[in-house]
């Protein structure tokens, strides 16, 4: 068993930066479809189509950029932004990360506002906020997976971080 502290110490690895880059690209795609549509690019719908299996994409429930809806709804945008912020922030918060890694079920508590919000009619800022709060702690989990793999592959005595 890898102790949580040991995992948290190795959150800053090249793979973690790769994950952050992937999250930024994902987020860029969400915004790019609106930007391209506003610029009159004829194939901007292709970018929107990429997200159709995972989001309802209802324009009335989405943020708009330059008059065009983003490729994901406000809640999904909140989830993506929260996850990306989490991937960037958790390596800078080792004590908090260690506490959450020790009691990972706490991530479910952060999902409660989102589940409550789903049941009630709320505005886009609230949907964005609850999505952000739900996804931020989840971002620690892939970082822990990367840290475990990094530690497992590091010869004894070497510093994985």
């Amino acid at each position: 068993m890898i102790r949580p502290r040991a995992s948290v110490e190795s959150l800053r690895s090249p793979w973690a930066y790769g994950l952050l880059l992937a999250c930024l690209v994902w987020l860029a795609l969400v915004f790019a479809s609106a930007l391209f549509a506003a610029a009159g690019w004829p194939h901007s719908d292709v970018l929107r189509w990429l997200f159709h299996p995972v989001c309802h994409q209802i324009p009335a429930r989405s943020f708009h950029l330059l008059g065009e809806p983003l490729a994901a709804c406000a809640r999904c945008t909140g989830l993506y932004v929260g996850f990306t912020l989490g991937v960037a922030a958790w390596p800078q918060l080792p004590r908090l990360a260690a506490k959450l890694a020790k009691r990972p079920r706490w991530i479910l508590v952060f999902m409660v506002p989102l589940l409550v919000d789903v049941m009630f009619e709320s505005g886009a800022p609230m949907r964005f906020a609850t999505g952000l709060v739900a996804a931020f702690p989840c971002a620690l989990l892939p970082l822990l997976a990367i840290a475990e793999m990094t530690v497992a592959r590091t010869p004894k005595g070497d510093d994985p971080g």
């Binding site: 102790r3 949580p4 990972p104 079920r105 991530i107 479910l108 989840c138 989990l141 892939p142 997976a145």
Partner: peptide
């Protein structure tokens, strides 16, 4: 992500290792 959340929920830790 679901697999990771599943581990966070269902994995029983080795308390002696902490």
């Amino acid at each position: 992500i679901g697999g990771l959340v599943g581990v966070a929920i269902f994995h029983k830790k080795d308390e002696s290792a902490e």
